[in-house]
Protein backbone atom coordinates (compact mmCIF):
# COMPACT_ATOMS: atom_id res chain seq x y z
CA UNK A 1 0.00 0.00 0.00
CA UNK A 2 1.34 3.36 -0.86
CA UNK A 3 2.61 5.39 2.01
CA UNK A 4 2.34 9.09 1.92
CA UNK A 5 3.43 11.39 4.65
CA UNK A 6 0.55 13.65 5.54
CA UNK A 7 1.92 16.92 6.80
CA UNK A 8 0.45 17.09 10.29
CA UNK A 9 -0.70 13.80 11.78
CA UNK A 10 2.00 11.17 11.95
CA UNK A 11 -0.56 8.43 11.81
CA UNK A 12 -0.80 7.39 8.25
CA UNK A 13 -3.96 6.87 6.36
CA UNK A 14 -4.23 5.81 2.81
CA UNK A 15 -5.90 8.61 0.96
CA UNK A 16 -8.07 7.83 -2.00
CA UNK A 17 -6.43 8.64 -5.30
CA UNK A 18 -8.74 11.53 -5.99
CA UNK A 19 -7.59 13.31 -2.88
CA UNK A 20 -4.10 13.78 -4.17
CA UNK A 21 -3.26 16.23 -6.87
CA UNK A 22 -2.88 14.12 -9.99
CA UNK A 23 -0.19 16.43 -11.21
CA UNK A 24 2.10 15.62 -8.36
CA UNK A 25 4.96 13.29 -9.20
CA UNK A 26 4.45 11.49 -5.96
CA UNK A 27 1.18 10.10 -7.21
CA UNK A 28 2.82 8.45 -10.15
CA UNK A 29 5.43 7.00 -7.87
CA UNK A 30 2.73 5.97 -5.43
CA UNK A 31 0.86 4.33 -8.25
CA UNK A 32 3.88 2.44 -9.50
CA UNK A 33 4.83 1.44 -6.03
CA UNK A 34 1.36 0.21 -5.30
CA UNK A 35 1.35 -1.84 -8.43
CA UNK A 36 4.72 -3.30 -7.54
CA UNK A 37 3.78 -4.13 -4.01
CA UNK A 38 0.69 -5.87 -5.23
CA UNK A 39 2.34 -7.27 -8.27
CA UNK A 40 5.34 -8.93 -6.73
CA UNK A 41 3.54 -11.29 -4.40
CA UNK A 42 0.93 -11.95 -7.02
CA UNK A 43 3.67 -12.70 -9.50
CA UNK A 44 5.40 -14.98 -7.05
CA UNK A 45 2.24 -16.89 -6.28
CA UNK A 46 1.65 -17.30 -9.96
CA UNK A 47 5.23 -18.46 -10.42
CA UNK A 48 4.86 -20.89 -7.57
CA UNK A 49 1.69 -22.41 -8.91
CA UNK A 50 3.25 -22.58 -12.34
CA UNK A 51 6.37 -24.27 -11.01
CA UNK A 52 4.55 -26.83 -8.94
CA UNK A 53 1.74 -27.72 -11.29
CA UNK A 54 3.20 -27.11 -14.73
CA UNK A 55 6.89 -27.56 -13.95
CA UNK A 56 6.80 -31.32 -13.48
CA UNK A 57 5.09 -31.64 -16.83
CA UNK A 58 7.63 -29.69 -18.84
CA UNK A 59 10.91 -29.94 -16.96
CA UNK A 60 13.14 -33.00 -17.31
CA UNK A 61 12.82 -34.03 -13.67
CA UNK A 62 13.47 -37.35 -12.04
CA UNK A 63 10.33 -38.94 -10.66
CA UNK A 64 9.67 -38.00 -7.03
CA UNK A 65 9.46 -41.62 -5.87
CA UNK A 66 11.12 -44.86 -6.83
CA UNK A 67 14.66 -43.55 -6.73
CA UNK A 68 17.71 -45.77 -6.77
CA UNK A 69 18.85 -46.55 -3.27
CA UNK A 70 22.46 -46.35 -4.38
CA UNK A 71 21.97 -42.62 -4.86
CA UNK A 72 21.02 -42.15 -1.25
CA UNK A 73 21.72 -38.76 0.31
CA UNK A 74 23.69 -37.15 -2.48
CA UNK A 75 24.72 -33.55 -1.80
CA UNK A 76 23.36 -30.60 -3.79
CA UNK A 77 25.15 -29.95 -7.04
CA UNK A 78 25.44 -33.63 -7.87
CA UNK A 79 25.04 -34.41 -11.56
CA UNK A 80 21.36 -34.25 -12.55
CA UNK A 81 20.40 -33.61 -8.93
CA UNK A 82 20.72 -29.86 -8.39
CA UNK A 83 19.40 -30.08 -4.85
CA UNK A 84 20.75 -33.52 -4.11
CA UNK A 85 18.78 -36.59 -3.10
CA UNK A 86 17.06 -37.79 0.05
CA UNK A 87 17.91 -40.97 1.94
CA UNK A 88 15.89 -43.11 -0.46
CA UNK A 89 17.72 -41.75 -3.46
CA UNK A 90 14.86 -39.56 -4.69
CA UNK A 91 15.63 -36.25 -6.34
CA UNK A 92 14.94 -33.43 -3.90
CA UNK A 93 14.02 -30.83 -6.50
CA UNK A 94 11.44 -33.10 -8.01
CA UNK A 95 10.00 -33.93 -4.61
CA UNK A 96 9.91 -30.24 -3.80
CA UNK A 97 7.81 -29.42 -6.84
CA UNK A 98 5.53 -32.42 -6.57
CA UNK A 99 5.26 -31.85 -2.86
CA UNK A 100 4.26 -28.30 -3.58
CA UNK A 101 1.36 -29.60 -5.59
CA UNK A 102 0.07 -31.58 -2.65
CA UNK A 103 0.68 -28.91 -0.07
CA UNK A 104 -0.86 -26.15 -2.16
CA UNK A 105 -3.81 -28.28 -3.09
CA UNK A 106 -4.53 -29.04 0.53
CA UNK A 107 -4.07 -25.43 1.60
CA UNK A 108 -6.20 -23.96 -1.15
CA UNK A 109 -8.98 -26.51 -0.74
CA UNK A 110 -9.15 -26.19 2.99
CA UNK A 111 -9.16 -22.41 2.99
CA UNK A 112 -11.65 -22.14 0.17
CA UNK A 113 -14.07 -24.49 1.83
CA UNK A 114 -13.47 -22.85 5.16
CA UNK A 115 -14.02 -19.38 3.78
CA UNK A 116 -17.21 -20.17 1.97
CA UNK A 117 -18.80 -22.55 4.43
CA UNK A 118 -17.37 -21.15 7.63
CA UNK A 119 -17.78 -17.58 6.60
CA UNK A 120 -21.34 -18.19 5.57
CA UNK A 121 -22.26 -19.91 8.79
CA UNK A 122 -20.57 -17.29 10.90
CA UNK A 123 -22.12 -14.32 9.16
CA UNK A 124 -25.51 -15.93 9.29
CA UNK A 125 -25.18 -16.71 12.92
CA UNK A 126 -23.91 -13.28 13.85
CA UNK A 127 -26.54 -11.50 11.93
CA UNK A 128 -29.50 -13.61 12.91
CA UNK A 129 -28.78 -13.49 16.58
CA UNK A 130 -31.19 -14.99 19.05
CA UNK A 131 -31.65 -18.70 19.28
CA UNK A 132 -30.27 -19.27 15.77
CA UNK A 133 -27.02 -17.74 16.87
CA UNK A 134 -27.03 -19.74 20.06
CA UNK A 135 -27.64 -23.07 18.41
CA UNK A 136 -25.01 -22.59 15.75
CA UNK A 137 -22.49 -21.36 18.23
CA UNK A 138 -23.08 -24.30 20.56
CA UNK A 139 -22.61 -26.78 17.76
CA UNK A 140 -19.42 -25.04 16.72
CA UNK A 141 -18.36 -25.00 20.34
CA UNK A 142 -18.29 -28.77 20.38
CA UNK A 143 -15.81 -28.76 17.54
CA UNK A 144 -13.77 -25.97 18.99
CA UNK A 145 -13.75 -27.56 22.40
CA UNK A 146 -12.83 -30.93 21.02
CA UNK A 147 -9.09 -31.48 21.15
CA UNK A 148 -8.12 -31.53 17.55
CA UNK A 149 -5.51 -34.16 18.13
CA UNK A 150 -7.87 -36.98 19.03
CA UNK A 151 -10.17 -36.13 16.17
CA UNK A 152 -7.30 -36.07 13.72
CA UNK A 153 -5.82 -39.34 14.87
CA UNK A 154 -9.22 -40.95 14.76
CA UNK A 155 -10.05 -39.68 11.30
CA UNK A 156 -6.70 -40.61 9.86
CA UNK A 157 -6.63 -44.03 11.45
CA UNK A 158 -10.21 -44.84 10.60
CA UNK A 159 -10.15 -43.53 7.05
CA UNK A 160 -6.51 -44.03 6.30
CA UNK A 161 -4.04 -41.25 5.58
CA UNK A 162 -4.53 -39.75 2.14
CA UNK A 163 -4.84 -36.38 0.46
CA UNK A 164 -8.65 -36.13 0.54
CA UNK A 165 -8.80 -37.31 4.13
CA UNK A 166 -6.19 -34.78 5.11
CA UNK A 167 -8.31 -32.05 3.57
CA UNK A 168 -11.33 -33.38 5.41
CA UNK A 169 -9.59 -33.45 8.75
CA UNK A 170 -8.25 -29.94 8.33
CA UNK A 171 -11.52 -28.37 7.22
CA UNK A 172 -13.05 -29.70 10.42
CA UNK A 173 -10.92 -27.13 12.21
CA UNK A 174 -10.91 -24.44 9.60
CA UNK A 175 -14.67 -24.05 9.40
CA UNK A 176 -15.44 -23.37 13.07
CA UNK A 177 -12.49 -20.99 13.28
CA UNK A 178 -13.54 -19.01 10.22
CA UNK A 179 -17.13 -19.06 11.40
CA UNK A 180 -16.20 -17.50 14.67
CA UNK A 181 -14.18 -14.76 13.02
CA UNK A 182 -16.96 -14.07 10.55
CA UNK A 183 -19.46 -13.89 13.35
CA UNK A 184 -17.43 -11.44 15.36
CA UNK A 185 -16.89 -9.25 12.32
CA UNK A 186 -20.57 -9.43 11.54
CA UNK A 187 -21.50 -8.48 15.08
CA UNK A 188 -19.45 -5.38 14.71
CA UNK A 189 -20.76 -4.45 11.31
CA UNK A 190 -24.42 -5.01 11.89
CA UNK A 191 -24.77 -2.24 14.42
CA UNK A 192 -23.40 0.27 11.99
CA UNK A 193 -25.53 2.99 10.53
CA UNK A 194 -25.66 1.81 6.94
CA UNK A 195 -26.84 -1.63 7.98
CA UNK A 196 -29.53 -0.18 10.16
CA UNK A 197 -30.53 2.14 7.40
CA UNK A 198 -31.02 -0.83 5.13
CA UNK A 199 -33.06 -2.60 7.79
CA UNK A 200 -35.25 0.38 8.35
CA UNK A 201 -35.87 0.67 4.67
CA UNK A 202 -37.36 -2.81 4.75
CA UNK A 203 -34.67 -4.83 2.98
CA UNK A 204 -35.00 -8.54 3.56
CA UNK A 205 -32.29 -10.12 5.69
CA UNK A 206 -30.69 -12.18 2.98
CA UNK A 207 -30.23 -9.10 0.89
CA UNK A 208 -28.61 -7.25 3.75
CA UNK A 209 -26.28 -10.16 4.31
CA UNK A 210 -25.20 -10.31 0.72
CA UNK A 211 -25.02 -6.64 -0.08
CA UNK A 212 -23.93 -5.05 3.13
CA UNK A 213 -22.51 -7.54 5.54
CA UNK A 214 -20.58 -9.75 3.17
CA UNK A 215 -18.56 -7.06 1.38
CA UNK A 216 -17.67 -5.46 4.66
CA UNK A 217 -16.42 -8.54 6.37
CA UNK A 218 -14.67 -9.84 3.28
CA UNK A 219 -11.42 -7.90 3.79
CA UNK A 220 -11.00 -9.27 7.25
CA UNK A 221 -12.00 -12.77 6.14
CA UNK A 222 -9.64 -12.73 3.20
CA UNK A 223 -6.83 -11.61 5.43
CA UNK A 224 -7.65 -14.43 7.81
CA UNK A 225 -7.86 -16.92 4.98
CA UNK A 226 -4.53 -15.87 3.57
CA UNK A 227 -2.98 -16.24 6.98
CA UNK A 228 -4.72 -19.57 7.11
CA UNK A 229 -2.91 -20.73 3.99
CA UNK A 230 0.36 -20.83 5.80
CA UNK A 231 -1.15 -22.37 8.88
CA UNK A 232 -2.76 -25.17 6.93
CA UNK A 233 0.47 -26.06 5.16
CA UNK A 234 2.30 -26.10 8.47
CA UNK A 235 -0.45 -28.13 10.13
CA UNK A 236 -0.27 -30.69 7.37
CA UNK A 237 3.34 -31.05 8.38
CA UNK A 238 2.30 -31.52 11.97
CA UNK A 239 -0.06 -34.28 10.90
CA UNK A 240 2.88 -35.91 9.16
CA UNK A 241 4.76 -35.65 12.42
CA UNK A 242 2.16 -37.91 13.95
CA UNK A 243 2.33 -40.28 11.01
CA UNK A 244 -0.85 -38.99 9.40
CA UNK A 245 -1.31 -36.52 6.56
CA UNK A 246 -0.08 -37.22 3.06
CA UNK A 247 1.27 -40.75 3.15
CA UNK A 248 4.86 -41.50 2.25
CA UNK A 249 6.49 -42.01 -0.17
CA UNK A 250 4.45 -39.30 -1.90
CA UNK A 251 5.96 -35.97 -0.98
CA UNK A 252 4.40 -32.94 0.56
CA UNK A 253 6.38 -30.11 2.07
CA UNK A 254 5.08 -31.12 5.46
CA UNK A 255 6.21 -34.70 5.32
CA UNK A 256 9.50 -33.74 3.69
CA UNK A 257 10.22 -31.55 6.69
CA UNK A 258 9.18 -34.34 8.99
CA UNK A 259 11.41 -36.93 7.33
CA UNK A 260 14.31 -34.54 7.16
CA UNK A 261 14.12 -33.50 10.79
CA UNK A 262 14.27 -37.10 11.96
CA UNK A 263 17.98 -36.93 11.33
CA UNK A 264 18.31 -33.16 11.19
CA UNK A 265 21.77 -33.11 12.72
CA UNK A 266 22.95 -35.19 9.78
CA UNK A 267 20.73 -33.93 6.97
CA UNK A 268 19.81 -30.32 7.71
CA UNK A 269 19.44 -29.44 4.04
CA UNK A 270 16.56 -31.87 3.66
CA UNK A 271 14.69 -29.70 6.14
CA UNK A 272 15.94 -26.45 4.64
CA UNK A 273 14.57 -26.77 1.12
CA UNK A 274 10.94 -27.49 1.96
CA UNK A 275 11.09 -24.95 4.78
CA UNK A 276 12.27 -22.26 2.37
CA UNK A 277 9.59 -23.23 -0.10
CA UNK A 278 7.02 -23.01 2.67
CA UNK A 279 8.36 -19.69 3.81
CA UNK A 280 8.26 -18.19 0.35
CA UNK A 281 4.77 -19.45 -0.23
CA UNK A 282 3.36 -18.22 3.04
CA UNK A 283 5.06 -14.90 2.56
CA UNK A 284 3.53 -14.43 -0.84
CA UNK A 285 0.04 -15.42 0.17
CA UNK A 286 0.10 -13.21 3.20
CA UNK A 287 1.36 -10.21 1.33
CA UNK A 288 -1.20 -10.85 -1.32
CA UNK A 289 -3.97 -11.15 1.21
CA UNK A 290 -3.07 -8.01 3.01
CA UNK A 291 -2.70 -6.03 -0.16
CA UNK A 292 -6.04 -7.21 -1.42
CA UNK A 293 -7.56 -6.28 1.87
CA UNK A 294 -5.96 -2.90 1.82
CA UNK A 295 -7.11 -2.32 -1.73
CA UNK A 296 -10.65 -3.26 -0.95
CA UNK A 297 -10.98 -1.28 2.20
CA UNK A 298 -8.75 1.69 1.44
CA UNK A 299 -11.10 4.49 0.71
Amino acid sequence: MAVTEAPAAAVVAVPAPDVLDPERGSLRWAGIRRRLVLGIPLGFVALLILACFVGPLVLPLHPPVGGDILNSALPPGSPSHPLGTDINGNDVLSRLLHGGQSSLLVAISVNLIGLVVGGGIGALSGYAGGWVDNVIMRVLDVFIAFPSLVLTIAIAQALGPSLPNTILALTAFSIPAVARVARSATLRIKTMPFVQAAELSGSPAWRILLRHIAPNITPQMLNFAMLGMGIVIVTEGALSFLGLGIPAPNPSWGNMIYEGQQSMSATPLLVLWPSLALLATVLSFNLLGENIRDEMSGR
Binding site: V3, G230, V234, G254, Q261, M264, S275, T281, N286
Partner: peptide
Protein backbone atom coordinates in the same frame (compact mmCIF):
# COMPACT_ATOMS: atom_id res chain seq x y z
CA UNK B 1 1.22 3.57 14.29
CA UNK B 2 3.24 3.99 11.14
CA UNK B 3 1.96 1.56 8.55
CA UNK B 4 4.58 1.05 5.88
CA UNK B 5 7.31 2.47 8.05
CA UNK B 6 10.56 0.66 8.73
CA UNK B 7 9.41 -0.88 11.97
CA UNK B 8 6.20 -2.04 10.37
CA UNK B 9 8.00 -3.60 7.46
CA UNK B 10 10.48 -5.35 9.71
CA UNK B 11 7.66 -6.67 11.84
CA UNK B 12 5.90 -7.95 8.77
CA UNK B 13 8.91 -9.82 7.53
CA UNK B 14 9.87 -11.29 10.87
CA UNK B 15 6.33 -12.32 11.76
CA UNK B 16 5.90 -13.86 8.36
CA UNK B 17 9.01 -15.92 8.84
CA UNK B 18 7.92 -17.09 12.25
CA UNK B 19 4.48 -18.04 10.98
CA UNK B 20 5.88 -20.11 8.20
CA UNK B 21 8.14 -22.15 10.40
CA UNK B 22 6.49 -25.23 11.93
CA UNK B 23 6.79 -25.08 15.68
CA UNK B 24 8.80 -28.27 15.88
CA UNK B 25 11.40 -27.01 13.43
CA UNK B 26 11.57 -23.85 15.49
CA UNK B 27 11.92 -26.00 18.61
CA UNK B 28 14.81 -27.92 17.11
Amino acid sequence: RRPGGIFDRTVMVVSMTMLAVPNYVLAM
